[in-house]
């Protein structure tokens, strides 16, 4: 196990380096740059722009800029946002919790509903419910999230006026209830896809378990169907679900991006989009690296869980 982890760690570091090189290069190849937004300022001359580029170190060769960035990064200095003037870590941290709140809520919703649909689908295989759930999951996976959000806003915010159209809270309020009401729409919209995914996994996980010997044994012992299900099926199916949760980690950045855009939710996705459109390289690179680390971490967790669950490894 130790050598496995060490090996993985080595591979991960190389991967992170590759990701950072590609990311940095692609970003800097995009024409324009962080100073472009000032080009229309009245009274601003090319002389001023050139001076600022020099002061900000943007006129240095790409390699030099990259190694400068890498060296600082290794020392724990993520740099300062061009747009915000704040340390990148602070900027990211500020948006991280908004995204965590949104994704956490949505995760709870999707796990709850998805598990129920999945198990019911498996235990009532080929029933009308199962068919509807299967087809429904497929449709849910096919709906563009942002469009679902738009329809939600149209119905619940503009027509019925039950829910706010966007934002995380009302200025000057910010009570728990206020957050909650702002959370409802974006978290359900975000949950839609996950409900579909979770319910499919839960269904097949349950089906895998349901036919195994020990479940039959348990049934033979005279345990009620419900108890068997709760104790064994759910218990066993939950392990693969942890794997899946691990795989969801990297979605922190990209998963909520469009939902955050539609609902003007001040999270990581929006931050990424804004930073990209302002060419705020330090923030984009910070987000990119964070996301890559999470992806690798997610894969690692998934692999470890699989290794732990796999009986061959357990025996060894």
């Amino acid at each position: 196990m130790a050598s496995f982890l060490l090996n993985r760690l080595g591979q991960s570091i190389i991967l992170l380096l590759i990701v950072s090189i590609i990311g940095f290069t692609v970003l800097n190849l995009i024409p324009g740059g962080p100073l472009a937004q000032y080009a229309l300022t009245p009274g601003m001359t090319q002389e001023d722009m050139d001076r600022l580029a020099r002061q900000m170190g943007l006129d240095r060769p790409l390699m030099v800029q990259y190694f400068d960035w890498l060296w600082r990064m290794l020392q724990g200095d993520w740099g300062t946002s061009y747009r915000d003037g704040q340390p990148v870590v602070d900027v990211i941290a500020r948006h991280l919790w908004a995204t965590l709140l949104l994704m956490g809520t949505s995760m709870v919703i999707s796990v709850g509903i998805g598990t129920w649909i999945g198990i019911r689908g498996a235990t009532h295989r080929y029933s009308a419910f199962d068919y509807v759930a299967t087809a429904g999951a497929m449709v849910a996976l096919s709906i563009p999230t942002f469009w679902f959000g738009l329809v939600g806003i149209y119905v619940f915010a503009l027509r019925l006026e039950w829910l706010p159209a966007g934002n995380m809270y009302t200025i000057g309020d910010g009570s728990f209830a206020d957050y909650a009401i702002h959370l409802i729409m974006p978290s359900f919209v975000l949950a839609l896809v996950n409900i579909a995914v979770w319910s499919r996994y839960m269904r097949s996980a349950t089906l895998d378990v349901i036919n195994q010997d020990f479940v039959n044994t348990a049934r033979a012992k005279g345990l009620t169907e419900r108890r068997v299900l709760m104790k064994h099926v759910v218990g066993n199916a939950l392990l693969p679900m942890i794997t899946l949760a691990g795989m969801q980690l990297p979605n922190l950045l990209s998963g909520a991006l469009v939902t955050e855009t539609v609902f003007t939710w001040p999270g990581m996705g929006r931050l990424f989009l804004d930073s990209l459109s302002y060419s705020d390289y330090p923030v984009v690179m910070g987000l990119l690296m964070l996301s890559a680390v999470l992806t690798l971490l997610g894969n690692l967790i998934a692999d470890i869980v699989v290794a732990l669950v796999d009986p061959r490894i357990r025996l060894a």
């Binding site: 990701v19 590609i22 990311g23 990209l276 987000l287 992806t295």
Partner: peptide
């Protein structure tokens, strides 16, 4: 793996 480690939305928008 390296490609998968990029958030696809980053690659797409940057490209």
């Amino acid at each position: 793996d390296a490609f998968l480690a990029f958030p696809s939305i980053f690659l797409m928008l940057a490209l």
